[in-house]
Simulated assay, not measured.
Amino acid sequence: MSRKNRKNSFLHALKRDYLLYGLLLLPIAYLIIFKYAPIYGILMAFQDYNIFQGIGGSEWVGLDVFKFIFHQNSFYRALTNTLVLNLLDLVAGFPAPIILAILLFEIRYVKFKKATQTVLYLPHFLSWIIIGGMVYLIFSSHGMANNLLNALGLGSIEFLSQKTNWLIMYVIVGIWQNAGWGTILYLAAMTGINRELFEASDIDGCSRLRKIWHITLPGIKHTIIILLILQIGRMVSIGFDRPFVMGNSLVSEYSDVISTFVYRVGIGSGDFSQATAVGLFQSVVGLIFLVTANYIAKKVGEQGIW
């Protein structure tokens, strides 16, 4: 198709579907304002940034900010904790929505299924401040769980102040908050599985477990791989709310992650150059992880992101 024909085709589509194209203006504006425009701020990572002089007037120092960060033990502790917590989420949290989606998919009573899905989705819409308050009220030293244990004569358990227990609680609370919402994509993928496969398996006398293993899981395999690749790409990134709200001074050795490190040096100390440099480091390493995971997936014969 010639350039002129392509132009006429686009103008015709624009005239025909102008309302749909108009709906794109808001998300495009969001991407430009909040995703692309801030890229200019990456320059702060290579400057001795001064808030009064701005990016244009601050002194250029090259890689000195990165060298300073990489010589800090607190940065390596935050990086290690980030990788450990994300790895725990990957091992324990990634399979959770898959298992939950399969269980929901196997429910035949529609009303009960919809009610269950609604209950499972609710934690996703709760703020981490609210969840943190709930966790503290239930699992603190004088919380409901320990009061019950004491009443049963079993003794208290330091759920939030003992390091290993805190890690377990961190993972469990994360699964509770995210697993229900994570089932949406898997359930959507399951609805696309050919129903004739299930009917044929019923004729052959297959059990439910065999149908799950030989039909359901292969049917959502590509979705699982794509989400796994994206999860691996976020191994160096971690949300601020969850570790900040659930952490405390007794477990700071485990709860201090890159996001809280950036908050401490960027907002607390006013060192925006360090905060920007750490953010840039996260993005570059995350991109490397993402490309590597995608490459490995395609090498073993699976479908990658691109």
Results as ranks from 00 to 15, higher is better:
residue 158 E to S: 13
residue 4 K to P: 01
residue 202 D to L: 12
residue 243 P to S: 11
residue 132 G to Y: 12
residue 189 A to S: 15
residue 1 M to G: 12
residue 272 F to L: 13
residue 296 I to L: 15
residue 296 I to H: 05
residue 170 Y to K: 05
residue 79 L to C: 00
residue 194 N to M: 06
residue 213 W to L: 08
residue 220 I to Q: 05
residue 126 L to I: 09
residue 159 F to C: 01
residue 147 N to H: 07
residue 223 T to F: 12
residue 239 G to S: 12
residue 101 A to C: 11
residue 93 G to D: 04
residue 227 L to M: 12
residue 185 L to W: 02
residue 234 R to L: 09
residue 33 I to W: 02
residue 40 Y to I: 13
residue 105 F to H: 15
residue 123 P to R: 04
residue 124 H to F: 15
residue 265 V to Y: 02
residue 302 E to T: 14
residue 190 M to T: 06
residue 86 N to S: 05
residue 84 V to H: 03
residue 191 T to L: 10
residue 253 E to R: 04
residue 216 T to L: 13
residue 154 L to P: 06
residue 38 P to S: 03
residue 142 H to S: 15
residue 106 E to S: 14
residue 288 I to A: 14
residue 119 V to F: 09
residue 75 F to I: 00
residue 211 K to Q: 09
residue 111 K to E: 15
residue 149 L to F: 06
residue 27 P to F: 08
residue 210 R to P: 07
residue 240 F to P: 02
residue 116 T to F: 13
residue 19 L to Y: 07
residue 214 H to N: 14
residue 75 F to S: 01
residue 276 T to G: 02
residue 71 H to F: 06
residue 144 M to V: 11
residue 305 I to R: 10
residue 227 L to H: 14
residue 272 F to S: 00
residue 245 V to C: 03
residue 135 V to I: 15
residue 196 E to A: 09
residue 279 G to I: 12
residue 40 Y to C: 03
residue 87 L to H: 03
residue 14 L to W: 11
residue 17 D to V: 00
residue 280 L to S: 07
residue 306 W to Q: 13
residue 282 Q to K: 12
residue 289 F to Y: 11
residue 110 V to H: 08
residue 47 Q to I: 01
residue 188 A to V: 11
residue 154 L to M: 09
residue 31 L to E: 10
residue 148 L to R: 00
residue 287 L to P: 07
residue 140 S to M: 06
residue 253 E to C: 03
residue 251 V to L: 02
residue 53 Q to D: 13
residue 278 V to G: 04
residue 9 S to T: 08
residue 10 F to Y: 12
residue 188 A to D: 00
residue 269 S to K: 10
residue 247 G to N: 05
residue 217 L to G: 08
residue 143 G to P: 08
residue 226 I to P: 12
residue 138 I to N: 12
residue 259 S to L: 03
